[in-house]
Design a protein around this nucleic acid. Structure first.
Lengths: 144, 144
DNA sequence: ACATTTTTGCAACATTGTTGCAAGACGGAG
DNA sequence: CTCCGTCTTGCAACAATGTTGCAAAAATGT
């Protein structure tokens, strides 16, 4: 792992009150390398030699709890995770960006700069969280 | 099963080019009884005595293909299905209504009359499908 | 009535996620 | 530095979810 990246992961872990451990730094490193969201199995394929399956699950759960990553639902049931860009901590997540899922390459991206439009819920409903997933073909696949 | 409902399911199956079979009529009956989306396991719990698990999976898949139901993604990986209200067939689904997932009762509802707001994707992306899931507390749970 | 296609059940398997428990690593107090 | 309690990890086992192949049963058209 490059020095700069290692430095950044360490800082991220510190800021989110997570101890620096090998799994956490490796997993965090993967997220920083890739521009798309990762599933548990994506990570497992890379790190299964080094760490246990269960450990990776628990790593992801702790990242989620501490506001380091967020969960992205998909209609095929394949949960994915992506780094939170800002301001999330153990108190709460505050995103409202759109996610894009490419049906060609299968990857999911955060469209950080596209904000989820707000809707008016019917009387009696209380809002807590929004998820907006657009599917189609991504930039890379359209070019190819 | 009531006569009227039986009549309706039969018509629905016919319209969507699916043979009338016991599983299909029963499953369709469940969807018509409930106002919320159903997961495979919801259905299995009711009909497991009567039909095989695999048959229920295949029934849901065929309903999906023929445009009788649509799939609703959830961030906990629990796929749910709900009846299509109109116009869907084996060619394509055409919904763009919002889904609401109640974190208290765990149920998911179609907000048929709330249309998903359209966004502008960045250059190079092609759109195919939209999913908008709002989470929070539903009407029923807020009243209680 | 017969041949063909669809649908179903069963068994087996694959993937995904969770839990309990014991061992190891870490951090703080003395 | 050492001891103690807490956090983290690995392992085994389990649970839930979903898929596939194959053979029997049911429905369809001729």
């Amino acid at each position: 792992m490059k020095k700069e990246k290692a430095f950044k992961s360490a800082a991220l872990l510190d800021n989110h009150h997570l101890r620096r451990t090998p799994v956490r730094e490796q997993v965090l490193g993967l997220f920083m390398d890739k521009s798309h969201a990762l599933s548990h199995s994506d990570i497992e394929q890379v790190l299964s030699g080094e760490f246990d399956r269960v450990t990776i699950y628990r790593t992801l759960t702790s990242f989620l709890d501490k506001g380091l990553v967020h969960k992205i639902p998909a209609d095929n049931g394949q949960t994915r995770y992506a780094l939170c860009s800002d301001g999330c901590d153990e108190e709460a997540h505050h995103h409202s960006h759109v996610h894009f899922s490419c049906s060609q390459c299968g990857q999911t991206f955060c469209l950080e700069h596209i904000h989820i439009p707000v809707i008016n819920l019917p009387q009696g409903y209380t809002l807590n969280e929004l998820n907006y997933i657009a599917s189609g073909t991504c930039k890379g696949c359209n070019k190819a």
